[in-house]
Design a protein around this nucleic acid. Structure first.
Lengths: 341, 341
DNA sequence: CAGTTTCCCGAAAACGTTTTTGAAAATGTG
DNA sequence: CACATTTTCAAAAACGTTTTCGGGAAACTG
């Protein structure tokens, strides 16, 4: 099979401990023997077994990316993938091992977060997709293993949160619509009791009130963040309220925007000529629709990178647990038309 | 910390070996002691350390998903993600551990596939995104660790390949266009020396010849599978050949179809009224464009599932290395118009 | 040059499991 | 009841590393 540390030791005429010291750049070894061992190691194409390393070593360079609901949600491939890319980017740059774990409710009930870490000798994790109904949501609070959640507020000694200022971002997005002259705006909402929904709602209402506008209850269309529900909701909306002068649809996600545009086109309306539509998230689909969708880019890849970064710093004791708010960016594409106020 | 097997052994008044036997359902243990041990284990919330398990155990339940070029290619989030989902699906169903490794050229030069397996105690891997210029492309041939490649033909004792019949599929797609009355068809091609390009080209030409049609060299637009290149190429094409009666664009990927449609719309043409367009792959974007793109669905999630399945069977000695050709499916959406022949 | 310090490195314990070996206990057989 | 067989389990080796401990050699000190 492949050479082990024993083989290298024998070939170099030293003890295994010395080989270990040579491989890991420890100080207490003479330059000469280190050279020789490194040479022999290269000769034998020796690669340390990371499993043994992980078992033996006190401090681990393994971090995890934990995904909840990965197999259930079929729609959002872009989000998780960009997040992964960000994490892997950081891991590669800092020579970390990263392992991915998809968890569902059953798995969460079976083993705690700490147990999962223990199972795999993991120093900490970036956790994505956690719902407030997930068992981990509560139990993380008392975790002794550090972790970083994405876009979900969990309090706890060892838990950080990386997110955007969704309130401000949505406020900005709403303000943009208003600046373009829109006064009667319908809101295509996400899941009623989701945290993100509440934040975005707050942003929308803030912007409207600041401009002396109201958001009538009838102008709120609730969905579960599903495109089809947005389509159905919007179709019904224009049947019932089509004559009331609404000029824009403010959607809580890009997917909802896609559904909204579909419904509008299905009803023979043009976007943005007849109705303006904006989305939220910045997933890559927004560039491929017609028209391209004006949205707020959360830059999820950076989020992944910064989450891994923060996790690493927590593990190393460089930074304490904290909330990190990353910048967002209004991406103006083609789905909004300026109207006369 | 968390309870180890020692703790369980002590609490149950037996040796660690016995605990191991109880946990793994070995036969040589009395039902009574097994019961008792399992109870104690649950009591202590014992979870075996998988790292130690992997190190100690002869046969491993760890498989890997190896992704080449994951961080480089920014465009195709859908493909890798669906593949992952398929693999994880199988892994969860069969209680396997799965680890994901992103490799680039540097990493491939640094360590061989076998070394990578050895490092992580991996029994075998599903490999995706391998280019014929990748170092692993050749070295896999002699690997003693089983592996399954996706959509790339590598010969070798222990390497399987899961793919679609791209020639037949593309032939079918082309035939569909012809059946709809199209006679003058332009081909939006992928990277010139890629294996997939050659296969699809073959399929296209087969179908055309069978119907007594020709594919003029000027009607072939080469790209590197990039949307922008397709846009540019098609824009130029209709400037130069717009008057020659071409009615359809046959694209080697969905992304190219998106680029093609973009260019056509940019030039004031309608799809499918003025030009029909078809894509290939079945990524989810095809459902979100306007019009929705008629394409061939490769069902990449199944591919991932079946690849993991085959890998598992190879490891267990149930199936030998082999090539697996999965069914594809023509997905008729809205980007093709019937014309009078 | 004797005593101290520093530098190297070998030996062995440790990480948490599985697996092999062998022996005691239980059961079966005639 | 003596012997053979089977069942059950304890003890210890093994997996491939890291890390601790300690000691001899070399290098300083006065």
């Amino acid at each position: 099979m492949t050479a082990t540390i024993q083989d290298v030791a024998k070939a170099a005429g030293v003890s295994v401990g010395t080989v270990s010291r040579a491989m890991n750049n420890y100080p207490d070894i003479s330059a000469k023997t280190r050279e020789r061992i490194l040479e022999v190691a290269k000769e034998l194409q020796y690669r340390p077994n990371l499993v043994a390393k992980s078992l033996s070593s006190k401090h681990s360079r393994n971090i995890a990316l934990i995904l909840s609901g990965f197999l259930e949600d079929v729609m959002f491939n872009d989000f998780e993938t960009m997040l992964m890319k960000g994490c892997y980017q950081f891991a590669i740059e800092h020579d970390l091992e990263i392992s991915m774990h998809v968890i569902n409710t059953r798995i969460q009930e079976e083993k705690s977060y700490e147990q999962l870490c223990y199972e795999h000798n993991i120093a900490g994790a970036v956790i994505f997709g956690l719902k407030n109904t997930d068992p981990y949501f509560k139990s993380l609070e008392e975790s002794r293993k550090p972790c970083v959640t994405i876009d979900v507020e969990v309090s706890g000694e060892n838990v950080s949160n990386v997110t955007n200022d969704h309130v401000a971002a949505f406020e900005e997005l709403t303000q943009y619509l208003i600046d373009q002259g829109h006064r009667n705006i319908a809101l295509v909402c996400g899941r009623k009791n989701a945290a993100v929904t509440a934040q975005r709602m707050e942003g929308a209402v803030n912007a409207m009130h600041r401009n002396g506008l109201e958001l009538p209850k009838e102008y709120i269309i609730y969905t579960n963040f599903l495109k089809e529900e947005a389509s159905a909701g919007v179709a019904e909306f224009i049947r019932e309220h089509g004559k009331e002068g609404v000029t824009a649809f403010l959607c809580m996600s890009d997917m909802l925007a896609v559904g909204t545009i579909e419904a509008l086109k299905g009803a023979g309306r043009r976007v943005p000529e007849d109705y303006s539509v904006v989305g939220y998230d910045g997933i890559y689909v927004t560039e491929y629709t017609d028209p391209k969708i004006t949205t707020v880019d959360q830059n999820i890849k950076d989020k992944g990178y910064e989450a891994a970064h923060l996790l690493y710093d927590m593990i190393e004791g460089i930074r304490p647990a904290q909330d990190l708010i990353l910048p967002h960016k209004l991406e103006i594409r083609g789905s909004v038309k300026k109207v006369d106020a």
